[in-house]
């Protein structure tokens, strides 16, 4: 099955040649959702850190890309640098927020994202409240630019799923799952709880930062009011809970479901949001482990099995 997943990725890489921008554009959105949800799942699903403030790192990624592009670096080359920047920014931030847990952590991360948003709003050098357009992109013809954005989106989505899987199935992931289950027992079993959480927080920030930078290359314009919006965290939560918290497939499934609902129902205005809410309630009540959690065998297993 894993080979099929690899095959699908290769097939998707051919979309710009075969189907063109009309299909590329919505898929970039889908891929960014997959990546966002996967990183949110590393925090909430595996490490027990329910963040409401990952939009902070979408913003850091996007504005980081702006600063790097202004400095003359090709925006597409700068995407990974913006991701690293988001991870580095997350490190000092992690010290105060990781002193908290549960609901306090969730609120603190949200407040933090608001602080980030206000700081950008009050900084005319990076566009203030009106936002900025992406510099250094005019050298690309539109068709090529859209294709490169698409490939980056695909690479970030596939890379995020793969990275979270490799993390979750290894030594680190086992310790992280233990921390998520019971931090007290974890500590008395020798797990450095603070270190495990800090890694999860910074890596998730870097991954989310890559998505923020990607979204900027996609829309070519960024505004603090939208990129720092809490709706992104709500979205991540929705996708992961619907798909299956703490599984590798869950965020992908959740992103697909959300994307399908959005594409078919967005025209119906508010009813679309009502339906999203109804789906969330139904899944929480009838399939609390998420849709993938109830579908049986995982394609990307994370369990450690005893050798016979």
């Amino acid at each position: 099955m894993r080979y099929i997943a690899g095959f699908i990725v290769i097939l998707l890489a051919g979309v710009p040649y075969m189907l063109g921008p009309a299909v590329e554009q919505p898929l970039v959105t889908l891929f960014s959702l997959v990546a966002m949800a996967s990183w949110w799942n590393l925090l909430a699903g595996f490490t027990g850190l329910t963040s409401f403030g990952q939009q902070a790192y979408l913003g850091v990624g996007a504005y980081g890309l702006y600063v790097l592009a202004l400095a003359g670096i090709d925006p597409f080359v700068a995407i990974p640098l913006a991701a690293v920047l988001a991870g580095v920014v997350a490190l000092p931030v992690s010290f105060p927020v990781l002193r908290l847990s549960g609901g306090h952590f969730a609120v603190a991360t949200w407040v933090l994202a608001e602080i980030f948003r206000l700081s950008v709003t009050l900084s005319p050098a990076i566009g203030g409240n009106t936002g900025v357009s992406l510099p250094g992109i005019s050298g690309y013809l539109p068709l090529l630019r859209q294709a490169v954005v698409y490939w980056w989106a695909l690479a970030i989505a596939a890379g995020s799923v793969l990275a979270v899987w490799l993390l979750a199935r290894g030594r680190y992931g086992l310790a992280a799952r233990a921390v998520g289950d019971d931090p007290v027992t974890a500590a008395s079993s020798g797990i450095r709880v603070a270190r495990i959480r800090r890694w999860a927080y910074c890596l998730a920030a870097a991954g989310t930062g890559a998505v923020g930078a990607l979204l900027f290359t996609h829309t070519l314009y960024v505004q603090p009011g939208s990129i720092f919006g809490v709706q992104y965290s709500v979205l991540m939560m929705f996708m992961v809970l619907i798909g299956g918290l703490g599984t590798i497939e869950g965020p992908v499934a959740g992103a697909l479901i959300f994307f399908a609902l959005q594409q078919t129902l967005a025209a119906h205005g508010p009813w679309y949001l009502v339906l999203l809410g109804a789906v969330a309630v139904a899944v929480t009540l009838f399939a609390p482990r998420g849709l993938w959690g109830h579908l049986g065998r995982p394609l990307f297993p994370i369990a450690h099995l005893q050798e016979r």
Binding site: D181, D182, E307
Partner: peptide
């Protein structure tokens, strides 16, 4: 008792072997 409820019995013990006893790979298993 406060086991890690989301982990299997084997994983509960394995995580203690890896982190508490600081064993790796086959030795931890």
């Amino acid at each position: 008792p406060r086991p890690f409820l989301g982990l299997s019995v084997f994983e509960n013990t394995l995580v203690a072997a890896q982190q508490g006893a600081r064993t790796r790979g086959r030795a931890s298993y």
